[in-house]
Design a binder for these strands. Structure first.
Lengths: 177, 177
DNA sequence: TCTATACTTGAGTGAATTAGTAGGGTATTG
DNA sequence: CAATACCCTACTAATTCACTCAAGTATAGA
């Protein structure tokens, strides 16, 4: 999966935008200062966000950026895809198999697995809106296990079908920074 | 998320191992030939797989590798974590915030989101066993996954039934959008 | 024992990608 | 008309990836 600082900065910046929406357009300089992100880098990211109609710009003095839609209509997936230009893992190296939809063409053995994973991730991120992230800023939340609304929190409770080894394995491998 | 060719090759190789388990230990040279992966690279990967007790090695002539457990006790998550050593995205750059569990310590704004995503991915991959991948080799399946919901079409409804995850992988299931 | 087989390890490297910088523009408004 | 702030292109240092190379160690069968 492709998830770099680009994507994370973009989400952070959009969240900042949402949080400061009340005072008119927000300048990149402000975001840069608040979030400690380089201005030049932000400009790059916002160019893409704008091209994807996730933000609207206002030029001239007093200008800045605004969300293009209400925050509950903006998903994290959109933001990441906009700046990363594809959320996919780099595809199964397409040399011999796995290139296509060709009729009798054989896909590589694990093709479906990765595709399935991609869908899972996209679905997860599509279900998280900026509005939810905003909300979360006001509810400091105790330990992250109680996480944000989204598929994961439900998954947590329906774990009984997996055997214990795997369950505990997964749990202890979620490293907290 | 961290998912490179390392992880993909490892899963492919393990699958190859599972598929050829009947003829005794499988040599890396064979896997390399069948899967078109460099032998030296495979050796690196299998060193890690062995250290994590996912495979057992048999030395000497006629030797090779075997799965350490039955294929339905081996999850894809384990394999990937073994070779990638952590499945996390590179953490929220831990400079000032987001370093810890410190009592009143402030986490960066999107910390919970990424952690939640990680859990989701691990959960997903933990639920897929090698045995299931083996099974899938014998049921070619129609193009399982259709085009994913693009940025424009957002997923409104939450994923309700997480037990379907496995089914969505084996059979086909399109993201409702 | 001898030796071919096969696992095991560590170091090194070229190519690609990332994470930014630099330095110009262009549009708008007070 | 000048200050503000968006806009765009190109460049680069550092990191990471995806291997390769070389030198072992252990074992089984002749």
């Amino acid at each position: 999966m492709r998830l770099t600082t680009k994507g994370r900065f973009a989400v952070t910046a959009m969240l900042d935008l949402a949080l400061n929406a009340s005072d008119g357009p927000v300048t990149l300089a402000n975001i840069a200062a608040r979030q400690k992100i380089s201005l030049s880098y932000l400009e790059q990211l916002f160019a893409k966000l704008r091209r994807n109609d996730l933000v609207a710009s206002v030029r001239g003095p007093g200008g800045g950026y605004q969300l293009a839609r209400s925050s509950d209509q903006l998903s994290v997936a959109e933001i990441i895809i906009a700046v990363e230009e594809s959320i996919d893992s780099r595809q199964c190296e397409g040399k011999k198999d796995c290139l296509g939809e060709g009729a009798g063409h054989r896909r590589c053995m694990t093709h479906d697995l990765w595709e399935s994973l991609n869908q899972n991730v996209i679905q997860f991120l599509s279900a998280v809106t900026l509005a939810e992230l905003v909300q979360q800023q006001f509810t400091p939340t105790e330990p992250a296990t109680k996480t944000v609304s989204g598929p994961a929190s439900r998954v947590k409770s329906r774990q009984e079908d997996t055997n214990k080894r795997r369950a505990s394995f997964a749990a202890e491998n979620v490293v907290a920074s």
